[in-house]
Amino acid sequence: MSRLIADIRGLSVHFGEHLIVDGIDFSIQENEILALVGESGCGKSTVALSLLRLLPDKGCTVAGKVLLGGRDILTVPENELNDLRGSAVSIIFQDPSTALNPVWSIGSQIVETLRRHRNISAKAARRQAIDLLDLVAIPDPHRRIDDFPHQFSGGMRQRVMIAMAISCNPRLLVADEPTTALDVTTQAQVLELLDKLRRDLSMSILLITHDLSLVADWADRVVVMYGGQICESAPTRSLFSAPFHPYTQCLLASIPPLSGGPTHRTGRLFEGPSAGVVTASAAGCRYAARCDRAEASCLSAKPAIFSVGAGSHLAACPVVKPSVSLAATVI
C-alpha cells in the first residue's frame, strides 16, 4: 500500500458570505499524480492556495485540516509554516509570465529558495541552480542562469518555475493549471517534464486543471469538483470507463473519443458563471440545479460520498447510488 503524503479533511473556505469550498475531503498518495478537475470558478485555485495557506487573511475564513507529514498546515505557527513552504510542499501557478519577479535574475530567485531551506554556500547554491535548470531542460543553463524572466518564452518560464519549486525536493508539488497559459506543444512538453520529475524525485503532484484530456493522459487518480464540492473521485481508468455522478457523465459525454493524445484539446469543460458563486445558505447538491436527474432530496441535504465500485471509486450522488454500495465511507 502506498504511503499517504497529504490528507485534506473537511476543508471549507468562505470568502466573506460566500462558501467557495464546501467541506471537501481527499488525500494524495506517495508518487502519484492526482488530478483535481472542475470548471472555472468551482474553487480549484482556492483549494490549491489552501494547501500552502496562501489565501489572504482578510475576508477569508478557512476551516478543516490540511495534513502534511503529520502536521496541519492550517494551524502550524508561521515560522514552521515557512519552513514547510518551498521545502515540503511547493506550488506553481497558471501564468508563468507574472509568477517570477521581473527585476531579479532567475538564478537569484532559485538560489534564494535553496539557501532559505538548505544550509549551503552561495557558490554551491549557484551550482545546484544550474543543475536544476539543466534538469528542467533549459538549454545552456550556465549562461541562462543570470538572465531575467522577460528573456524567456512562456514555456521556458514555466520550466524555471518548476526548477524553483522542486529545488528543495518537496514531497508534494501543487500545479495550478500549469499549462493553461501555454500553447499545445509546450503544454505536452511541460506535462512530460512534470511526469518525469515525479518519478525521478519520487514526488506527488496535485495537477489542477479544467482540461479533461490532460487528466486522461497524465493523472493516476482524479477528483472531480463542482461548485466547491467533490462529486466523484476515482482512479483515472475507472472514472473514464464507469463514471457515476451525473456531472461526471455529462463531462465525459462532452468529450469525443478518448484516444486523443496529449494534443487532444476537446475535453474542455463548459464554462459558465453558475458553478462559482454559491451562498452559504444554499443546502444540498450544488449540481442539482443543472442536473436532469435531480430529485427533491438533492436540494435539501448535502449528498454523502459513497463507495461505488471496485478500488477506491467514490461518488457523491444518492440518486445513482448502486444498490450493492458499501456503507458510506470517508475517503
Binding site: 500552502l52 496562501l54 509554516l81 515557512n82 519552513d83 514547510l84 513552504r85 518551498g86 521545502s87 511547493s90 506550488i91 501557478f93 501564468d95 507574472t98 509568477a99 517570477l100 519577479n101 521581473p102 527585476v103 531579479w104 534564494e112 529558495t113 532559505r116 531551506h117 518555475m161 524553483m164
Partner: peptide, 26 residues
C-alpha cells in the same frame, strides 16, 4: 498583490526578504 510576491511567500521566504528584496526594488 503581484503574483511574484505570492510566489516569494510560497517559497517560504521571510517577510524581510520579501519586503526589502522582492517588493522594494519593484
Amino acid at each position: 498583490n503581484q503574483d511574484y510576491i505570492r510566489t516569494a511567500i510560497a517559497k517560504g521566504l521571510d517577510r524581510h526578504t520579501i519586503v526589502w528584496k522582492h517588493m522594494l526594488r519593484n
